[in-house]
Nucleic acid binder design. Structure first.
Length: 782
DNA sequence: TCAGCTCACACTTTTGAATAGC
DNA sequence: AGCTATTCAAAAGTGTGAGCTG
């Protein structure tokens, strides 16, 4: 949940609305970021930001509002999530970043096909507790650690048209979790042994400049998890191995199964033993003990070679690799000479002899497992969260509506108290996750968003199954040209660098280090816009699981960041560190994460190094000239610090989750009437229009989990993370980080000229592949 | 002493380039 | 010459277990 102060840009006045609106034919206008007066103007931002976004009644408001209200999101792999949730989902976090598994696979509907949207993922703490796996279950053992700056993962395809988002499954599997508080790769930073709840936010690109309307947040209770550095619950491990294709090797029939590993270990020991014997004795003597297995497996050779400094002369007949097959050779092995062990040995040998040819049976099983990875058998899953709670093995689940797999809207109300709670036992209320634009003023209430960075994961080539890159999304033929990285846009932050780095191919200018966030907000270039809008035909249409829609949830973190970036009308070159989010459609300054070369035709235009000004820049090229005053207000001084938005985490209370339809504020879009919302493709009962309100059944462990439709009522919105709230958070909870509005990831070496920063980053291992991100926190990420 | 974290390891899938064939 | 399919190697994603740290 982002506080308003963090997203100054979002609070843009109505006058700006028109500018933000997408205009196909409008010529691109590049306005330098960070006009001289930007700092002065920025000083004025905080107040504006704090103020609720102006509700702008617009002529077409009703129409668009209706459209937005119908935005629906489904969690396609909810069955898999529920399986994990029933046990107590654990997510590994590592220093280098670990993907989430299961991943969030979503299906969106109800979007306006011609409008551009940004999809964000953030992960917020569910409570203020730290957990420990004891007695087969998760128990709160203490207070949570100081809250980390929130980072938001921006879907690589963002911004993309509604048609694009609705035509395929949206996957956030590129998002990575890390426990490295100094992470520079843009990964989402989490604390180990804490409970978190992922949230997905859908934001109209134009709304970035005018935050407060058209945002929808979705929370799927079954996706909550506890972060760990090593799996605690063996059931989770088993589920992961059976579900994740990458862990196939650890399955029973896999080459990395415990059986196989034991076998390898034994072989290794045998080899070492033999080696020692050889070294200490006559090598040829050892051959007497060794049977002569016909062929040596490559793996055995590798083992032998690795373990042995020098192999004995083959002439003597000694074959280290062969020794592995002789269990009897090693005294310890005798203990493991069970049939199982022998079987494993034999399988290992067979595999080796086959030269990599897999057992057909095994392959089929593996394949089947792989295929099942995304679709876990529903039958197995019974009790969703309630069961989990009841189940000692699972961590206390936040109050999940049994029937519904959906989200809760963000709470606009302040949670008064951060009282300690025992998450394990106490039922949790799901605060309303969404806040309408009107609620933005109270954004401070949403602690989770206070400090948010935007992460641009490495965009994989989009595919039907996976989100496609923006470029590709717009149209197959014109994908490459649709978006341009703006030279001015630079991610100040080193981490941002990685994320926003345009890969060499993408950034012809060579300003890889510079990230353009504005692309998210930008509209396609005039030339390409038509194409972008028109194409998006592919629809993958599986809608497997019912998702709970919490429309109008205001992504707290994301919005601020976006808002913070605002175009400045000045001609001066933008500071090297700032990220601009050009609003102009002509050239989207979207810096896609590393994309296939063919797609990466994103020239940085007008790159000019300038004193880094750590701020996001979302220049609306067309708009900047029009609303200079606006821009001025948009750029707060980099030094500007927002009051800590972190709030004490109120204890979760058992409650029914109620979804509140946030008041949708339609931004004024005089320039172009919005096309009617595309018919909602999804007919699944699980999806629900945002507007309607329904009470979420209280969390009840007993009944089986059934996704149900949840509707939002503002008054009923539970706060997902009550602990994070408006009032001043306990200093102990979040002392460390202040929220800075526009600051992006701190560039490690701001002194370096923009063109050379990428070199520095590369030298320091900031891989572009990891994607770029924006760090809204004040901290230096590097 | 121990819980938690880091790292290397082996295995797997994914991805992109190179090559062959049409 | 252009397109598609196949092959190969490299990169990246997994859980495991040993070792380290506080």
């Amino acid at each position: 949940m982002l506080s308003m102060e963090m997203f100054p840009g979002l609070a843009l006045g109505p006058q700006r609305i028109g500018d933000c609106f997408y205009r196909e034919r409008e010529a691109p206008v590049h306005i330098p970021l960070f006009p001289p007066a930007s700092e002065v103007a920025a000083k004025a931002l905080p107040r504006r930001l704090l103020a609720p976004p102006p509700s702008v009644p617009v002529s077409n408001e009703s129409a668009s509002a209706t459209q937005k209200d119908e935005v629906k999101m489904e969690l396609e792999n909810s069955s898999l999530w529920k399986q994990f949730s029933s046990v107590g989902t654990e997510m590994i976090i590592t220093k280098k970043g670990r993907r989430m598994f299961p991943g969030l696979k979503l299906k969106l509907s109800g979007l306006n096909p011609s409008l551009r949207y940004i999809l964000l993922l953030d992960i917020v703490p569910l409570d203020n507790s730290r957990y420990r796996f004891q007695g087969g279950g998760w128990q709160a053992v203490g207070a949570a650690e100081a809250r980390l700056p929130d980072r938001v993962f921006i879907h690589p395809d963002s911004p993309a048209t509604g048609a694009h988002w609705q035509s395929r499954t949206i996957s956030f599997h590129y998002a990575k979790l890390t426990n490295n508080t100094l992470d520079t790769q843009g990964h989402i930073i989490l604390h180990s042994l804490h409970r978190y709840q992922p949230r997905v936010h859908v934001i109209e690109a134009r709304d970035v400049l005018r935050w407060g309307g058209g945002q929808h947040s979705f929370v799927f209770p079954e996706t909550q998890f506890i972060t760990v550095t090593a799996y605690q619950n063996s059931k989770i491990t088993e589920l992961k191995i059976n579900s994740n294709p990458f862990a196939k090797g650890f399955r029973e029939d896999g080459m990395n199964s415990k059986r196989q590993r034991d076998a390898r270990q034994k072989r290794k020991i045998a080899v070492l033993t033999e080696t020692l014997d050889i070294v200490n004795c006559d090598p040829c003597d050892s051959t007497e003990l060794l049977p002569q297995p016909p062929a040596s497996g490559a793996d055995l050779q590798a083992l032998a070679l690795a373990s042995l400094p020098a192999l004995p002369d083959p002439s003597c007949g000694f074959r280290p690799e062969e020794t592995s097959y002789q269990d009897t050779l090693v005294p310890e092995q005798s203990l493991d000479l069970s049939q199982e062990f022998m079987a494993s040995q034999m399988s290992d040998i067979n595999i080796t002899l086959a030269n990599g040819i897999r057992d057909p049976t095994g392959s089929e099983k593996a394949n089947s497992m792989t295929e099942r990875s995304d679709i876990m058998p529903e039958p197995s899953y019974n009790s969703s969260f309630p069961a989990a709670q009841a189940n000692s093995s699972s961590f206390p689940s936040a109050p999940l509506p049994q029937s519904s797999s959906s989200f809760s809207s963000l709470p606009t109300t302040d949670s008064s108290d951060t009282s300690d709670h025992q998450p394990l036992i106490s039922p949790i209320n799901y605060p309303s996750l969404l806040s309408s634009s009107s609620t933005l003023s109270t954004a401070s209430n949403t602690p989770s968003l206070q400090q948010t960075s935007f992460t641009f994961p490495t965009p994989p080539p989009s595919s039907s199954s996976s989100p496609q890159s923006l470029l590709s999304s717009s149209s197959s033929s014109t994908t490459s040209n649709n978006y341009h990285t703006v030279p001015e846009t630079i991610s100040p932050h080193a981490s941002a660098d990685a994320s926003f780095h345009a890969s060499p191919s993408t950034c012809q200018s060579g300003l890889q280090g510079q990230v353009s966030v504005h692309s998210l907000l930008t509209q396609p270039s005039q030339q390409l816009q038509a194409e972008l809008i028109t194409t998006e035909s592919n629809s993958t249409g599986d809608q497997s699981s019912g998702a709970f829609l919490y429309p109008n949830i205001v992504p707290t973190n994301p919005s601020p960041a976006l808002s913070t970036v605002q175009p400045l009308p000045s001609q001066n070159p933008p500071p090297a560190l700032s990220c601009s989010l050009p609003m102009h459609g002509s050239s989207t300054y979207f810096a896609p994460p590393p994309a296939p070369p063919q797609r990466q035709h994103l020239p940085f235009s007008n790159m000019s190094p300038s004193p880094g000004h750590p701020a996001l820049h979302l220049p609306n090229l067309s708009h900047q000239a029009q609303a200079p005053s606006f821009a001025a207000a948009a750029f707060p001084p980099s030094s500007f610090t927002y009051p800590p938005s972190t709030l004490p985490h109120p204890p979760f209370q058992p409650s029914s989750c109620l979804a509140v339809a946030s008041s949708f504020q339609q931004s004024v879009t005089p320039a172009a009437p919005l096309p009617p919302a595309a018919p909602n493709p999804s007919t699944s009962s699980s999806t629900y229009p945002a507007v309607e309100i329904s009470a979420i059944p209280p969390f009840n462990p007993a009944p089986p989990y059934h996704p149900e439709m949840v509707r939002h009522h503002p008054s009923l919105l539970p706060q997902l993370d009550p602990s994070i709230h408006s009032s001043t958070p306990p200093s102990a909870l979040y002392p460390a980080f202040k929220s800075y509005p526009l600051r992006l990831c701190q560039d490690p070496h701001p002194s370096l000229s923009v063109p050379f920063r990428h070199l520095y980053r590369q030298q320091h291992g900031h891989s572009l592949s990891q994607g770029s991100y924006l760090d809204m926190s004040t901290r230096t990420v590097f």
